[in-house]
Simulated scan of single mutants.
Amino acid sequence: MSNDVGAQSVAPRPQGRYVPAVLAGGTVRTAGMTPRREGELILTGRIGAEVGLDEARTAAAVAVGNALAAIRAILPEGTSFRPVEMIVYVASAPGFTDLSVVADGASDVIERELGVNALPARTAVGVHTLPGGAPLEIALTAVTI
């Protein structure tokens, strides 16, 4: 993939009965974003089994790119924002513990697009399975500035 692996210009289409993001006051919360391009998962499987670490980091970059696109799509044009919390759900094989390394793939995109001072607080959680067999899912919360 190119260096613009996380960059998305359009909010992803929901895969169910929900919206990609909600703006409430000055806070935007995204739905959980998986690594999809044009509605299709780019990768499936559990990290540490079917999915390698480098693939997982790339998937995290795509997922957070989708989250950033959803935020940008709901905000009025020209509105600046800062991510404040990111939760990364990692579908991981038993014994896989490099959750933070996977999440760093998403943090790298935020830093590249918005700067190091825009990095959010972050939680990485290992789970057994995610929708559609996605290897990870990212929920991002941002505030307008």
Rank of each mutant, 00 (worst) to 15 (best):
S2V: 14
S2K: 14
D4M: 07
D4L: 12
V5D: 10
V5Y: 11
V5T: 14
V5F: 11
G6H: 04
G6F: 03
A7W: 12
Q8A: 12
V10E: 14
V10R: 15
A11P: 06
P12L: 08
P14D: 07
P14W: 10
Q15I: 12
G16I: 00
V19L: 04
P20M: 07
P20T: 07
P20L: 13
A21M: 10
L23H: 12
A24F: 02
G26F: 14
T27A: 04
T30W: 13
T30I: 10
A31P: 07
M33L: 06
T34N: 12
P35Q: 09
P35I: 11
P35E: 09
R36K: 09
R36D: 08
R36G: 09
R36T: 12
R37N: 07
E38W: 05
E40R: 15
E40Q: 15
E40K: 12
T44N: 04
T44Y: 03
G45T: 04
E50M: 04
V51E: 05
G52R: 06
G52M: 02
D54Q: 10
D54A: 13
E55D: 15
E55A: 15
E55L: 09
A56R: 07
R57Y: 05
R57P: 01
T58R: 14
A59P: 08
A59V: 13
A61N: 07
A61H: 05
V62S: 00
N66L: 10
A70K: 04
I71V: 14
R72D: 05
A73H: 14
L75Q: 11
P76D: 13
E77A: 15
E77Q: 12
S80V: 11
P83G: 02
E85D: 14
E85K: 11
M86C: 09
M86V: 07
M86Y: 02
I87V: 15
V88M: 10
V90H: 12
G95Y: 03
G95V: 02
G95S: 06
T97D: 12
L99A: 02
L99W: 00
S100N: 14
S100I: 03
V101A: 08
D104P: 01
S107P: 00
S107Y: 00
D108A: 15
I110W: 03
I110G: 15
I110P: 15
R112Q: 13
R112M: 11
R112P: 09
R112K: 15
R112C: 04
L114G: 06
G115S: 08
G115A: 04
V116Q: 11
N117V: 02
L119C: 03
L119V: 03
P120N: 04
P120S: 09
P120F: 03
R122G: 07
